[in-house]
Design a protein around this nucleic acid. Structure first.
Length: 114
DNA sequence: GTTATGACTTCAC
DNA sequence: CGTGAAGCCATAA
């Protein structure tokens, strides 16, 4: 008998925990990129994995997922996020981060350096 | 097994 | 600075 497909394998996984641990260290008002988080979590080139882990967080998580943006310095927009991208931008603005007319922020100025 | 898809990144034009 | 292609790796079909 085959084991039922786990609904979410990334949540609770060791790799997922490592990623969350890094994201939780991002100070309020600062951002990091997916690739940066991946590298800091000890798994370079796993940027996409970071995005997938964040997508599975539940709404009451203590992980500041909104402080993670892509390498271009913009909030990743996707229909599959069902409005989560808009929320992300709003949360960042509430922390004092400014966006230009193209949904981008200044990475040089806002990137969190460990 | 193969193919397609993504909250990605990097490099070449 | 924009675009496209290739690389990436976990999931879903």
């Amino acid at each position: 008998m085959r084991k039922p497909l786990p609904a979410v394998t990334l949540r609770g996984d060791a790799a997922a925990e490592a990623i969350c641990a890094v994201v939780r260290r991002i100070p309020r008002g600062w951002v990091a990129t997916y690739g940066q988080v991946a590298t800091m979590a000890g798994m370079p080139r796993r940027a996409r994995l970071v995005g997938r882990v964040l997508q599975h967080l539940d709404s009451k998580t203590n992980v500041p997922w909104h402080r993670v943006v892509n390498a271009k310095g913009e909030v990743s927009f996707s229909l599959s996020r069902n409005g989560g991208d808009i929320l992300q931008r709003r949360l960042l603005e509430k922390e004092g981060i400014e966006f230009d007319g193209r949904n981008r922020l200044d990475l040089e100025r806002n990137r969190w350096l460990d």
